[in-house]
Design a protein around this nucleic acid. Structure first.
Lengths: 223, 223
DNA sequence: GTCTATATCTTGATAGAC
DNA sequence: GTCTATCAAGATATAGAC
């Protein structure tokens, strides 16, 4: 893990206190993403956080609790990124300095611009935060049933947000798809799977991926 | 696991002999897909195959060897499905009864029809064989470096197959994409991720998913 | 809050009888 | 080829000193 990657990971958890608890979450997220939840030991996590094996249980009830916190915070962060992008793109008038032609001629929400912004932000989040995203997307079945139920609520909100954007676009005559639920599935799937294949040293930056996917999704939606 | 699912899983491994070795692979694939490689014990596998814990080591060198066989055979099967679909769609003249207008007027390979057939087959394979596919796609980092290298060869062939289909379509003026590698990434990603979200009792059958995705991909490629 | 030491259990894999 | 029995290592989590 490079220093830059570590910074990014750490920034995601900047609200967590005390520092020892935060260091543990950061270490756990990196280990769970790299080797998987079950392949990671509490000793690994403690060692990476610079503490003894027993120190884990000062701040967390169990190894699974550590996973749940990462999953809960990660799901919330990705939902925030998605809704923020969709909202700010829908109301360009609220950003005074951005006096583009579009904001002057079209103060109404533009479904295509909103979708492009949402997909770009959501896809690039899964690249930029691929460590957290992998835990979020691929360790769901290691959660207890109660904890799983809690993150499913957040996942449904993410899905609903995308589905409504598509349905709005269809209603406005901007998108042309017969199966809005199917398109929702595909859009989300495309963005989420970025967490699987993205590699930091690769050909494309997170921003590149966001731009590429925004374009491909608008084509898929028949704009 | 329903009886139908078990049949499908078993058919994938019908070449494996003796029967005890096959039962073990089937049990391992189901367990690895359901709980993950590291969460599965050799005792789980043996019990599901109706044998003692020690019986695993009669037919396989280690737990990882079991994973490797599943991964190798699964990768090969998905590559075969992809190339078969692309090949048979490219030469409709070889299927005499299918006297469609397209095959009469255009004996040349049709990039769009070929891509549609390939995506439909590859995506629906990941649904139909989601158990195997999950092991193939999500347990790569549990393989030894040597075994990992071996499946990477197969993965590259899958990627090359799709990239060439897209490049051929662009050259023929049928597809309109600026970034062929980016489009390849997205097409493969979309199909592979089916293994993650697909559920047998869900709204869409594997065939439905194949048809939906073939359509969405052709739109993405600007036909 | 953090440590050392350890209890308790489960794991992958092997030995040797049949 | 398959079993029973078992080893040696490593797992999560806790106890109790500081």
């Amino acid at each position: 893990m490079t220093a830059h990657e570590f910074d990014l990971l750490d920034r995601t958890w900047s609200d967590i206190t005390p520092p020892a608890a935060r260091r543990m979450l950061v270490a756990a997220a990196a280990a769970f993403a790299g080797r998987g939840y079950h392949a990671t030991t509490t000793r690994d996590i403690a060692a990476q956080a610079g503490m003894s094996p027993a120190a884990v249980y000062i701040h967390y009830r169990s190894k699974e609790d550590l996973l749940f916190q990462i999953s809960r915070i990660g799901h919330t962060a990705s939902l925030d990124v998605l809704t923020s992008a969709a909202t700010s793109a829908a109301t360009p008038a609220t950003t005074p300095a951005a006096g583009s032609a579009a904001s002057l001629t079209s103060p109404e929400p533009d479904p295509a611009a909103r979708m492009a912004a949402a997909v770009s932000a959501f896809a690039s989040w899964h690249a930029e935060h691929h460590t957290t995203a992998r835990v979020v997307q691929y360790e769901l079945n290691a959660l207890t049933p109660e904890h799983f139920a809690e993150v499913v609520v957040l996942r449904r909100r993410i899905e609903d947000t995308v589905r409504r954007m598509i349905e709005d676009g269809v209603a406005a005559g901007v998108f042309h798809v017969l199966d809005a639920r199917g398109a929702t599935l595909a859009v989300l799937s495309l963005c989420i799977d970025v967490a699987r294949w993205y590699q930091p040293g690769g050909r494309r930056s997170p921003a590149d991926i966001g731009a590429l996917y925004a374009d491909l999704v608008l084509r898929m939606l028949g704009t």
